[in-house]
Design a protein around this nucleic acid. Structure first.
Length: 584
RNA sequence: GCGCCCGUAGCUCAACUGGAUAGAGCACCGGCCUUCUAAGCCGGGGGUCGGGGGUUCGAGUCCCUCCGGGCGCGCCA
């Protein structure tokens, strides 16, 4: 029997489509969906197309099913087809058809599982995009793990993927960071300026100050009196006064430092981004581009985007501010793009940013955001609509909160108290593989309870080791065997016929479908669950069957199977950014 | 008050976008290491899919309603 030129499922769907042309020529657009039945008695694949057609054809589904079966072309892969239940058509494959996947995996290797749904389409995945004003925390880590794996997944689905980090390096938060670092810097010159109540408190700010001194000496130093003179008081607890004092301090810094304020800001920004890039790199997360918000202003893109909206009558002035009429495109209320004081809002640069994304030619843009930003989606989509860009081309998966648990208790975190756990702490404590797996073992829009004890445990309770162990076990067996792996590619697979073997064959056959489904749903967790199931099938097989037996034909067939299983495990783990160790 | 998300076994979560008997892990009980790694396997108990109504051949999944939890509703980012 020749190996299939196309994959099994495509072949089977084709059989149904041929039959439909005869049975229901007026309804050949009905999609043929093949499912894996939960019960073995229902065959290897089940098709519900007869039931789908019942309504349109106004006929009994079982009768339609029989007519389809009568018209199914004979196939070397199909043993028989039968009607079951309300009108399911159950297909039973010949054993050779089930075994063929092993050869396919050997032929495709690392590329096994790649599908073509995204072929010819460019997609951008923007993720993390944390403010450079502080270290990454465990919430950012989840976005990083999700975005990175999603990008891998989309690539496997055939998309041309660009990974991007949007750097919020403009605006007031950045100014506050600069001023915070500056005050710490002044302390190094014994210029005691009271640290602002809403400044960034972390130790990293002192580090930046020390770096500034090391590089630029006293260049930014000014007398404390000149800095504080005339600043408004900020009584503790009076938030408005605290903010007002900060604004005055920012103004004072710009005034005293002149052009050097920008130099200082860029210096601090550079170091902050370096730290973020470094942590993410160690976490296995990289980007094709770091896109600066600042550059949107410097290049005139913000002004240009707003001009386009203006020219099309989507902007108006009220109460001294400029508004975007987002309600014209389904938003709850109109939104300010330029404040009364002349400053642009964050939304203004975001309009320009998304305008620019689509001008760069992406067919699809994925923004990975924290769930607390969900109210922001309608206005961004409204902006796209105003640019006559189909808002459906922007998809925004929302990442829910992460709560750390240790000893059964929630680990308390508060940004104010500075007691929050950073991504760096987490990955140093738990390890990169376990951290990435735990982040991905849940749907992204589901709250995640991250059990630190479990993630750290090197035990059978820990799912990530469970999967890696399956991979390592295959290596161990092959090493024990000591033969030439390439030789296994030519093994005759006919001896594979036990239930455990057929289960494994079915599982690895489903891998490309799993990729396609997970990619369509933007759901890397599907891969995590799949790998756990595959590992379970393997461990069960391992425990019940000895591979290194005397009978060479049987031995080679079994080794070929587990070698194929190992390939699939490795391919899947790579998508998740989790290592596939040879031994543990 | 309005909008979005969520509610499935004691706990943490799946469920192929409407399919056949709702599945895993943890926890609990009982077995398996002189044989390729026991970070493993095998068996067992455990469910009103938050409640109620509707749509249809068929609903955990879609619609309505109520209950319960989270988040959002700035000329903040």
């Amino acid at each position: 029997m020749p190996p299939p030129a196309i994959d099994l499922k495509t072949h089977l769907s084709g059989l149904f489509e041929t039959a439909l042309e005869v049975v229901a020529p007026e309804a050949t657009d009905t999609p043929v969906v093949l499912e894996r039945p939960k019960v073995a008695a229902h065959g290897d694949f089940a098709c519900n197309v007869a039931m789908q057609l019942a309504r349109r054809l106004k006929r009994n589904p079982r009768e339609i099913a029989q007519r389809i079966i009568d018209q199914l072309p004979t196939s070397p892969w199909v043993a028989r087809a039968e009607i079951a239940g309300a009108g399911f058509i159950n297909l039973f494959l010949r054993p050779e058809a089930k075994r063929a996947v092993v050869q396919r995996i050997f032929a495709e290797g690392d590329a096994y599982g790649r599908v073509t749904v995204g072929a010819g389409k460019r997609v951008q995945v923007e993720f993390v995009s944390a403010n450079p004003t502080g270290p990454l925390h465990v919430g950012h880590g989840r976005g990083a793990a999700y975005g990175a794996s999603l990008a891998n997944l989309l690539e496997a689905a055939g998309f041309d993927v660009a990974r991007e980090y949007y750097v919020n390096d403009a605006g007031r938060q950045m100014d506050i960071l600069s001023v915070s670092a500056w005050v710490r810097y002044l302390e190094l010159f014994a210029e005691a300026v009271p640290f602002p109540a809403n400044g960034y408190q972390g130790d990293y700010v002192r580090t930046r100050a020390a770096e500034m001194k090391a590089v630029d000496g006293d260049r930014f130093s000014r007398p404390a009196a000149a800095v504080t003179e005339g600043l408004p008081d900020a009584p503790e607890g009076d938030e408005a006064a605290v903010e007002a004092r900060m604004d005055a301090l920012i103004e004072r810094a710009k005034q005293l430092l002149g052009p050097d304020f920008d130099r200082l800001t860029l210096f601090v920004l550079e170091r902050q981004l370096e730290g973020i890039r470094d942590v993410l790199g160690r976490f296995g997360v990289t980007f094709d581009q770091w896109y600066s918000e600042r550059s949107l202003y410097d290049s005139g893109r913000v002004a240009r985007a707003l001009e386009v909206l203006e020219a099309n009558g989507h902007l108006y002035t009220q109460d001294g501010a400029r508004w975007f009429r987002s309600t014209a495109f389904g938003d709850d209320k109109d939104r300010v793009v330029q404040r009364e004081n002349g400053l642009f809002t964050y939304f203004a640069s975001d309009i320009a940013y998304h305008h620019d994304k689509f001008q760069r030619g992406f067919d699809l843009v994925v923004d990975v955001w924290g769930a607390d930003h969900h109210g922001y989606i309608p206005r961004v989509k409204a902006a796209l609509s105003a640019f006559e860009i189909d808002p459906e081309r922007l998809v925004v998966p929302l990442i829910q909160l992460v709560a750390l648990f240790q000893g059964g208790e929630a680990v308390k975190m508060g940004k104010r108290s500075g007691s929050y756990v950073t991504l760096e702490d987490l990955m140093d404590d738990v390890g990169v593989d376990a951290t990435r797996y735990f982040y991905l073992a849940r749907k992204c829009d589901q709250h995640l309870d991250f059990d630190l004890d479990l993630a750290k445990s090197q035990s059978n309770d820990n799912p990530v080791y469970y999967i890696q162990y399956a991979h390592a076990r295959v290596s161990s067996v092959l090493e024990e065997w000591g033969g030439d792996r390439a030789m296994l590619r030519a093994s005759d697979l006919a001896p594979l016929d036990t239930p455990a073997e057929l289960t494994l064959l079915q599982r690895i056959t489903d891998y490309p479908d799993t990729i396609e489904f997970a990619a369509r749903d933007l759901a890397p967790h599907v891969i995590a669950f799949y790998l756990k199931d595959l590992a379970a099938d393997f461990h069960s097989y391992y425990n019940g069957t000895r591979f290194l037996v005397e009978d060479e034909a049987v031995r080679n067939a079994r080794l070929a199977l587990v070698l194929a299983v190992q390939q699939v495990l490795r391919n899947g783990l790579r998508l998740l950014g989790v290592g596939a160790p040879e031994r543990m």
